[in-house]
């Protein structure tokens, strides 16, 4: 049986080989495709923290993905038009600097996940699923009815946001930026789950009543992971906006929440690299089956059903059967 860590290296090398093939055959599309996989993988890593390690089945992570995306696009829009973002209480202008946009996307997504978490984490099970979905749908309909930023049509970005000394329009450069963020997200997740806090989190997922009985405030434990999870997914959203140079309400739609959840389930719940593997598999299916039929998601559904029946630990679990949470 292949160990998870060994398997992760192969997944990673395979992913690196795609841009290499793109360069060799002068096909930048492959690099863009690999970048999309990485970004969706980051979103999945964010959700995996809450869902996989915390047992919080959030069906509203599109909210954070969309918020991150809109932060990037709105900042860029105001920078391009040289319009102030706010005049009261402070005059704040837009920016096309990724070094400003990233922290802003993270902080605003974290803030929204804190608000949503404070209310939704008082519930559990199906009520938690529904309340997170409801919050995301509220934001979705808000974005549709927000004409200043494109409403239903979405908002285009004139060009990708910038980074000092690096041409972000170069597909390979942008791929490497996203890859760096992916590793930061993995590093943060790994640190969190291997800390004392991570132990409390994973215990809460298994037996919350017992964890409470040893004096641990499980609400606080869950809220912290929800905020980290939302912040990472928000960052992925801002990168996704830059990749496409476009944001639309669809980023906030429940379909997006479902897709992020599919990445996590396909790859393997509570597996560090599982979401990346899930996102890769999803995109491969989209790109291959999508050539033959518009309804390729029918086959995705079939694969998901088979996986849930026969391989609950996801693709990663097929190779490494170790007992996972």
């Amino acid at each position: 049986m292949i160990k998870e860590r060994f398997f992760n290296k192969w997944v990673f090398l395979l992913l690196l080989s795609i841009p290499a093939i793109g360069i060799i055959f002068n096909e930048p599309y492959y690099i863009t495709l690999a970048t999309k996989v990485i970004i969706l993988g980051i979103a999945g890593v964010g959700l995996n923290l809450a869902l996989g390690y915390g047992g919080l089945i959030s069906f509203g992570h599109a909210a954070f993905f969309g918020i991150g995306g809109y932060v990037a696009a709105i900042m860029s829009y105001h920078a391009l038009n040289e319009e102030l973002l706010f005049e009261i209480p402070l005059a704040i202008s837009g920016s096309s600097e990724m070094l400003i946009i990233w922290p802003l996307a993270i902080v605003i997504s974290a803030f929204f996940s804190l608000l949503i978490g404070l209310l939704s984490l008082r519930t559990s099970g199906v009520y938690f699923i529904m309340i997170t979905l409801a919050f995301a749908q509220m934001l979705y309909y808000f974005s549709i009815s927000w004409p200043s930023y494109g409403g239903e049509d979405g908002l285009s970005m004139h060009m990708r946001n910038t980074l000092p000394f690096i041409n972000t329009m170069n597909p390979l450069n942008f791929f490497l930026i996203c890859l760096a963020w992916f590793f930061i997200a993995i590093f943060i997740t790994s640190k969190l789950i291997n800390s004392p806090y991570g132990m409390a989190l994973q215990a809460t997922k298994q037996n919350e009543e017992r964890v409470k009985s040893v004096g641990i405030e499980t609400f606080k434990v869950k809220l912290i992971v929800f905020v980290f999870s939302g912040a990472i997914t928000g960052l992925a959203g801002s990168l996704y906006a830059d990749l496409n140079r476009f944001v639309s309400p669809s980023m906030l739609n429940w379909h997006t929440s479902g897709e992020i959840m599919v990445f996590v389930i396909l790859g393997g719940i509570a597996r560090l690299y599982g979401p990346l593997l899930g996102a890769s598999f999803f995109i491969i299916l989209e790109q291959t089956l999508g050539l033959y039929t518009e309804n390729w998601q029918f086959w995705l559904g079939l694969i998901l059903i088979l996986e849930i029946i026969f391989a609950r630990s996801g693709i990663m679990g097929l190779f490494d059967k170790k007992n996972k949470l």
């Binding site: 291997n194 800390s195 004392p196 606080k220 434990v221």
Partner: peptide, 12 residues
């Protein structure tokens, strides 16, 4: 130590 977020558990 419950809310030590980034310190390794094994180092305790």
């Amino acid at each position: 130590k419950t809310f030590q977020l980034f310190k390794s558990l094994n180092s305790n």
